[in-house]
Design a protein around this nucleic acid. Sequence first.
DNA 1: TTCATATTTCGATGATACCCTAAATAATGA
DNA 2: TCATTATTTAGGGTATCATCGAAATATGAA
Lengths: 228, 228
Amino acid sequence: MNAYPNISYIAKLISEPTRAIILESLMGGQALPAGELAYKAKVSHPTISSHLSKLVEGNLLKVEQFGRHRYYKLANEQVAEIIEKLGAIAPPVQVRSLKQSDHLKQIRSARTCYDHLAGELGVSITEALLNQSLIILKNDQYEVTTEGEKWFKNLGIMIHNVGKSRRVFAKPCLDWSERRYHISGWLGAAIATHFIEQNWIVKSTTNRSVRLTKEGTIKLKETLDLEF
Amino acid sequence: MNAYPNISYIAKLISEPTRAIILESLMGGQALPAGELAYKAKVSHPTISSHLSKLVEGNLLKVEQFGRHRYYKLANEQVAEIIEKLGAIAPPVQVRSLKQSDHLKQIRSARTCYDHLAGELGVSITEALLNQSLIILKNDQYEVTTEGEKWFKNLGIMIHNVGKSRRVFAKPCLDWSERRYHISGWLGAAIATHFIEQNWIVKSTTNRSVRLTKEGTIKLKETLDLEF
DNA sequence: TTCATATTTCGATGATACCCTAAATAATGA
DNA sequence: TCATTATTTAGGGTATCATCGAAATATGAA
C-alpha cells in the first residue's frame, strides 16, 4: 500500500479550458455525444475526441455507446463535487450572454434524426402519443394500440401490412438535445415522411433542421393538442 | 453579462507538479519559507519564487513577511479541502524507495489535514465519536449530542459559545488515504489542538505526519475504547 | 454492396510555460 | 559601510501539448 495520490494529473485534466467546458457541460448529470460537446466547446471533432479520451482515461468521464453515438457523462458524484468546489474558489470571469446561434436553436427545436423527427418537436410528438395511449412502450419497443391504429389511419398513415419490412417497427431513440426519447424505426420514418408530404413540416436545404408550417401547427393542435 | 467561475485557472495552478508539491507540503496548515519549499520540491530558488507568486496571485496561498523571510501557507480551509478531494479521486502513484515508503506509512497512519486530524487516526476517532453517538451527522454536518457535549467537556474541550465563530462547526472531510471521513471544521481543529496541547500526539517537524504518544494511546483507549 | 453519419487516428504546426543561470533587489548584522 | 542571506527579475533554451485538416474507422440504413 505504498501509493501516493497524483493530484497534479487530475488537476491537469481539468485545467485545459476545452476540457473544463466539457466537464461543466456535463455537470447536470446528463450524457452528451462527442459532436455536441465539440459544438459547445467550439473545437473540431478531432480535438474534442482527444480531450474526451483523456478524460475517460483519467476516470473523470464515463462513456456509453449507442450505435454510432457515444454519450459521455461524469464518472461519478465525486467528480461533480470537485468541479463544484473549484468553481467556489475560482475567480469569476465576465462573459457576454451565451448567445446560441440561430442555427443551433433551429436544430434543437426540430430536426430529422436519420429519417425520423427529433428535437423538441420529435420528443413532444412521441410523448403526446404515449400520453394519449396511441402507442405504448413494451420490451423497449413502441406498439400501436387499437385506438392508435385508428388515429394513424385517420391521419393518413396505414400501419397494417408492415410485417414484411425487416426494419424494427418503432422504438425509442435518445434525443441529444432534449435528453428524452423520440420515436424511430419504421413508424418514426412514416410519421416524418407523411408530415413532409402533407407540407406540415419543411426540411431545410442546408442542414438537418425542419420547420413547422402553419398547416402543421394547426394539425398538431387538432390531433394531439400540441401547441407550437 | 454573466459571471461564471474560471475553474481551469485554479486547476492549472494546482496541476503543475512543483506547485502540487508546494500545496501538499503546506497541507499540514503550517507556514514555510520559499527556500525550504524550493528544497522540498527540488527546484531552484527562482523557480520556486515564480510558482509561489502565481499561487498567491490565484489566492491559493497567503504570504507573511518576517524580515527577509517570507512564510507561505494555504490561503484558507477551502483550498485544503480541494487538495484533499483531488487526492481522493487521483490515481495512486507507486513509490519505490523504502525510505519514502516509511514516510508514506506514517502519513497514512496519522497526519494533520490543514488544522485537524486525518489518516487512520483521524478517521478512527471520527467513527468512534459517531458510533458512540457523541456526534451525529445532520445535513452533511456533524452535531454534538448532549451526551457528546459532556464527553468533550470531560476531555477538556468546551463547545459552547462557539456560535459566534463564523467558521463551520464540524463537517465530514473525505480522507484520501482511508477513503472514509474524518472530522474537520472548528471542532476538528479543536480536537487536534487539544491533543497536541495535552501531548497525546506530537507533530513531525519535517512533514504532515503526527505520532501518537503513550499518553495519547492510553487516553484513546479510556475515552473511546480505541486500540492503537 | 454503397451511401451517410459519427468519431478517431495521424502528422505537422504553433503557442505556452517550465526551467535554469546570471544578475538585481531587499533585509539583516557586523 | 560591507558582507551575508533570502528572494525576485530577466532572458533564452526546450519540451509539452492543444489544435486542425485529411484520412481512416465504425456503425446504420437501404
